[in-house]
């Protein structure tokens, strides 16, 4: 930093607040979702809780991809690339499960 936090000028302070709002909110959202999952994992409140846990993970992944990695602000091609890998994972898992769930 150009100078210690206490002596930042008002404009710099405003700039800092403006720039860091999104990362901090993202951080809080991720921590909240993690807290949900850790609680679920530690207490195991009901049968098949894994399904809910996976939903929470999916939400965390979406937050990281869309906000932390700024996919929301990227051009369409980058959006496509960010989803392509997950789509291919779905192909791999889905086609493999036709075997293992069909045995």
């Amino acid at each position: 930093m150009r100078s210690p936090l206490a002596t930042l000028s008002d404009t710099d302070r405003a700039l800092l607040k403006d720039r860091l709002r999104k990362p901090v909110l993202t951080f809080l959202a991720l921590m909240g979702l993690l807290a949900v999952n850790v609680t679920l994992g530690a207490t195991l409140p009901f049968e098949h809780v894994w399904a809910l846990e996976l939903v929470v993970v999916a939400a965390m992944a979406l937050v990281v991809l869309l906000v932390s990695m700024e996919v929301l602000h990227e051009p369409p091609l980058v959006k496509l690339f960010s989803g392509l890998g997950f789509f291919w994972v779905a192909i791999m898992v889905g086609m493999t499960l036709t075997d293992y769930l069909g045995r």
């Binding site: 999952n37 679920l40 994992g41 894994w50 846990e53 996976l54 993970v57 992944a61």
Partner: peptide, 14 residues
């Protein structure tokens, strides 16, 4: 980080 965020539930939690 995201890989770990997915690995932790997949290995430890579910």
């Amino acid at each position: 980080d995201l890989i770990w965020i997915m690995a932790f539930p997949i290995l430890y939690v579910v």
